[in-house]
Design a binder for these strands. Structure first.
Lengths: 256, 256
DNA sequence: ATCTTAGAACGGTCTAGACCACTCGCCGAA
DNA sequence: TTCGGCGAGTGGTCTAGACCGTTCTAAGAT
């Protein structure tokens, strides 16, 4: 059930010289920003038409514009909904838990696997060690505020984390590596690509098979040693990455 | 004087199950491809409405779609025109070209548009200036070995690049900005997300509608001024990004 | 308890205009 | 010859609906 259109502040000024649909667009934008959490329904086109004394086509024009800006989306037969803003994930070497807490969200994880495996040829190559070398494999579904956000899988050479598998799976991997094993990731590199959701990943992330996902493969280093190789899949509708850039040689940009 | 609408082949099939405005859109697309050189005028909205027995609003919907795809453009008081031709131009892009050449591929670019526009509400917000402010819009399809790789679109405040549009579209945008206007990008930020290919982008990149693409929105700065906002779509099957990482406070990583 | 159907509410599409502002060409007056 | 005004043609905006397809819920039947 959509919110009542009568709750929307603002009126149309037919003498202002600004197109009526443009005025309505801005009224709706302000209303959404102040009163509409993501996922909430807007009043129907007909309700808005009645509330503002406009033709439904004029209301649709204003809504068309906000749809184009990805502020809202329409669902046939159901209504018009505020889009969840995509999270700006700065690509940096901090733990997921820290990042979500910084955003006022409750991080959670469902452990899918926490075990020792021998390095496959592929993993041996990525981690720069011999095939068969023991690795700790830590695979999780990461959630924020109860919603699936990403599927992460880490591979860490077992000899660097003796005893890790004896305890409970860590709630924050990088924190445990740092505090328990003195491994503080100093640098790394990400490979970022778009990919289509496989059936298993789709099920975990609650998206349709084939939906676009962000895939990030990461190599993390301590000094010259690669300590972690990970693969993560992020829901495309909930994530975008924020990457600070700097021209080589230019002074560091200010971070907000 | 526009061509007569009676010259347009094709008819609307009200029983086909395909929306009438979609049918008209495709009729117009074919007509433009076969009979309308760039710059020529289409029949007016009212002529098309009469020719096909449709409401003018329905015709406008079909035209809206082709305008959105940049096949045609509208001019208030004058008419609807087929957009200027694509310019085939070999472009040297520092990072793109190097990357392609490292792979033993031949880089190229197709200019899709090179023009001045007034800033839309969205672009005004992204570029931190007033709605309507003149911008230079530079849109390209980037290819390697003749295959489409990405679609890039830059927006630069026109006052920063006086005379830029008088010449040919630059082969290397950032080089021209640097050498001709003294604008050297010092820092910036990318927003990276996965998205599903829209019909127009899918056609440009030769992928299926809905296929995953990497979308990168970039804000580039000189000192504190934002000088360039760009949006790029990359084929997911042909592109992944490499992002060097560094833990805040750690010493700089070695670059290869 | 379950299934089916109908109705309500939604967005999508379409009709049939009207009126406004812009552009350009033509014609008449100076 | 030049200038201004007017009319025609254009797209932009808006009205006031109608009808279709989708989705969901509630009520009645089994």
């Amino acid at each position: 059930m959509a919110a009542g259109a009568t709750a929307i502040k603002g009126d149309i000024d037919r003498t202002s010289g600004t197109a009526i649909y443009v005025q309505l667009r801005e009224i709706l934008r302000a209303y959404i920003a102040q009163s509409c959490p993501p996922g909430s329904a807007l009043p129907s086109e007909r309700d808005l038409a009645e509330r503002f004394g406009l033709a439904r086509m004029t209301v649709r024009q204003a809504i068309d514009a906000l749809v184009g800006e990805e502020v809202i989306e329409r669902v046939v037969g159901l209504g018009t909904f505020v889009r969840r803003p995509k999270l700006d994930l700065q690509v940096k070497l901090t733990s997921y838990s820290e990042e979500m807490q910084r955003r006022g969200m409750v991080p959670a994880a469902k452990v899918l696997s926490f075990e020792q495996i021998g390095a496959s040829a592929f993993l041996a190559r990525e981690l720069q060690l011999d095939e068969g070398t023991p690795l700790v494999r830590f695979r999780r579904l990461l959630l924020a505020d109860g919603e699936p956000m990403s599927v992460d899988e880490n591979f860490i050479p077992a000899h660097r984390v003796p005893g890790l598998l004896d305890g409970e799976p860590p709630t924050s991997l990088y924190n445990v590596l740092s505090e328990q094993f003195g491994l503080v990731m100093e640098w790394g590199e990400d490979m970022i690509e778009a990919t289509a959701a496989s059936p298993s990943t789709a099920r975990l992330l609650n998206v349709e098979v084939g939906a676009p996902l962000l895939k990030i493969q990461r190599h993390a280093f301590v000094a010259r040693a690669m300590v972690d190789y990970s693969v993560s899949y992020y829901r495309a509708d909930r994530y975008k990455l924020w990457v600070p850039l700097q021209r080589p040689g230019a002074r560091r940009a200010r971070n907000h």
